[in-house]
Design a protein around this nucleic acid. Structure first.
Lengths: 103, 103
DNA sequence: CCGTATCCCTAATGATACTG
DNA sequence: CAGTATCATTAGGGATACGG
């Protein structure tokens, strides 16, 4: 199982290289958001995928999850230190998408 | 079908946000490579996925494909201008993977 | 409000064999 | 050497309904 030519890029993509993860992280760059609001910002994501994705991000220590003991229930997500360290990359990816002009 | 809160990051990830694309692009940063050699550098990729992925990268104008009229056949892939413009991002992703220290 | 649990369907991927 | 074709398997993802 030893991966020849293993490269750190592969490791990074294993953490954030999915359809939804970068978007969620990106929308948290400007500060923490409660669950429902964050989900609404991620257009097109299903409830299932949203929950599943934030769980993985939390497990990998890229975001933190804070539960408030109130009714109705309230949950807030925000970037962890580790997640914050991706800020430059996330903004670069976004900027590239702005500047890129196909055709 | 109008995507609310569409963000350019989404567009970028649509181009390179897969398991193999960033790796292939990354291994072409130091210059063009012939098909077999490139594929060998991408550890774990199946023949099918390799061909499929380089086809998509070519279709999106991120790499170019040059066929040599020789026997045995020879094909070389290299980054296009557009692909080259991702260099900083690709290296950042790689560097992040090096510097990141989980736990 | 937030999240889980099912069911179900399609797309993605690997293995293998074959062609120019 | 480079690539295609086929088959079989799995993983991704949506819809819905339910529970704390």
């Amino acid at each position: 199982m030893s991966e020849k030519n293993y490269c750190p890029l592969h490791y990074t993509m294993g953490l954030i290289g999915t359809k939804w993860k970068p978007l969620i992280l990106f929308h948290l760059l400007d500060g923490g958001l409660r669950s429902g609001l964050l989900q609404k910002k991620i257009s097109g994501i299903s409830n299932k995928m949203f929950t599943q994705t934030v769980r993985e991000l939390e497990k990998d220590g890229l975001i933190s999850r804070k539960v408030f003991a109130v009714v109705p229930s309230k949950v807030e997500y925000k970037l962890s230190e580790r997640g914050r360290s991706l800020e430059n990359i996330l903004r670069s990816l976004d900027t590239w998408g702005v500047e890129d002009n196909p055709k």
